[in-house]
C-alpha cells in the first residue's frame, strides 16, 4: 500500500523514500524558556531511511531540538509527527517506545552496569519476563534471558564489541563508550536514531570508521538517522540532507553541496564577508 505522500516544498528527503510516510515531520516546532525563544519555527521532514544532519554554531539550539523530539522538553508550539502520528500526548518513555532513540552529547551510560546490561536496559521493553518468574527462576525467565543475552551480543557485534560484554561500562575507553551508547539506543528498536555529536573526541581514523558504521546501521536496520556534528568531513560525507540552525532558526536546508555553497551558512559560521 504505497501511496504518494505530498512532500513539503522544503523537504530534503532522498528519492528512494519519497513514496513512504516520512519517519519524522515537524511543523512550526518551537520552545521558549521564560522569555527566551530557544527554537523557533522548526520545520523538518526526514525520510524513512535518510541520514540527516543538523549543524550550526555552538548554542544554536541543536541539542534543544533533540530534547524536544524526545520529549525531555515539552514544545511550546508546533507539532511533531512520528511515522505520521502526532506525539503531543506522549512522554519521554512513550516516545521511545514509539520509535525515537538517542545518544547524548556528554556520554550518559549506566557506568556501574556491565556493557551487556547497558544494552539489555535498551532491550528492556522487549524482554518479557515478569518479576515473579524472574524471582522464582521459572523456565520462561531463562528463555527470555537467553534471548536477551543473544540479542545483546548480536547488537554489540555491530561494533565488534561482543568481547567487552562483561566489562563495566564506565571502565571502557572513550571511543568504546560512544559506540556502546549507539548500541544501547539501537536496542530500543527505533525507527529514528538521534546521534548527538557521535564523533566528538574521536581521532580521524575513528571518525572514518564511525562514518562507515553509521551507514552500515542504516542499511542493516533500515532506519533513519539524524545527527548533530561539528566534524564537517563526517557531516558532508554521510548526510543526504542537512539543516543548518542558527539562533534557534533553520537558516538553510539542502544537500551537502548546496549547504557548502550557501552564503548564509558561511556567514553564520565565519561571520559576514567584507564588502567589496
Amino acid at each position: 500500500m504505497s501511496k504518494m505522500v505530498p512532500v513539503p516544498s522544503n523537504s530534503i528527503i532522498p528519492e528512494r523514500d519519497l513514496d513512504k510516510i516520512p519517519v519524522l515531520e515537524t511543523k512550526h516546532l518551537g520552545i521558549d524558556f521564560g522569555g527566551l525563544t530557544a527554537v523557533e519555527d522548526f520545520n523538518l521532514t526526514i525520510g524513512r531511511t535518510e541520514i540527516a544532519g543538523l549543524i550550526g554554531p555552538n548554542g544554536a539550539g541543536k541539542t534543544t531540538v533533540f530534547n524536544l523530539l524526545t520529549k525531555v522538553y515539552q514544545p511550546t508550539r508546533g507539532t511533531i509527527l512520528l511515522n505520521g502520528t502526532d506525539t503531543a500526548n506522549l512522554n519521554a518513555v512513550q516516545v521511545n517506545k514509539a520509535g525515537i532513540a538517542r545518544t547524548f552529547q556528554n556520554i550518559r551510560l549506566f557506568s556501574n552496569l556491565t556493557v551487556e546490561d547497558n544494552v539489555k536496559i535498551g532491550l528492556h521493553n522487549s524482554v518479557n519476563s515478569g518479576m515473579f518468574s524472574s524471582i522464582l527462576r521459572l523456565p520462561r525467565h531463562w528463555k527470555s534471558e537467553r534471548a536477551a543475552h543473544e540479542q545483546a551480543l548480536d547488537l554489540l557485534s555491530i561494533f565488534d564489541m561482543q568481547d567487552l560484554a562483561d566489562h563495566e561500562a564506565g571502565a571502557l575507553p572513550y571511543g568504546a563508550q560512544r559506540r556502546l551508547e549507539i548500541v544501547r539506543a539501537l536496542a530500543t528498536n527505533p525507527s529514528l536514531l538521534l546521534l548527538d555529536e557521535p564523533a566528538a573526541g574521536m581521532n580521524p581514523s575513528e571518525t572514518a570508521e564511525l562514518m562507515e558504521n553509521i551507514r552500515k546501521i542504516r542499511d542493516t536496520f533500515q532506519i533513519a538517522i539524524m545527527l548533530i556534528e561539528h566534524d564537517m568531513n563526517l557531516v558532508m560525507g554521510i548526510c543526504e540532507g542537512i539543516a543548518v540552525l542558527n539562533y534557534g532558526k533553520i537558516i538553510a536546508k539542502g544537500t551537502p553541496s548546496e549547504i557548502q555553497n550557501n552564503p548564509q551558512v558561511i556567514e553564520a559560521y565565519l561571520g559576514k564577508q567584507k564588502e567589496g
Binding site: V93, F110, N112, G122, N125, M131, S134
Partner: peptide, 27 residues
C-alpha cells in the same frame, strides 16, 4: 534481584541516571 533480573537492572539504571533511563524506555 538487582544483579540478574530485568527489573533490578532497570532499578540500577534509574538510580544512576533517571533521564537517560527514561529515554531508553524505562518507566
Amino acid at each position: 534481584f538487582t544483579g540478574k533480573t530485568k527489573m533490578g537492572k532497570a532499578m540500577r539504571a534509574v538510580s544512576e541516571d533517571k533521564g537517560a533511563a527514561q529515554l531508553m524506555g524505562i518507566n
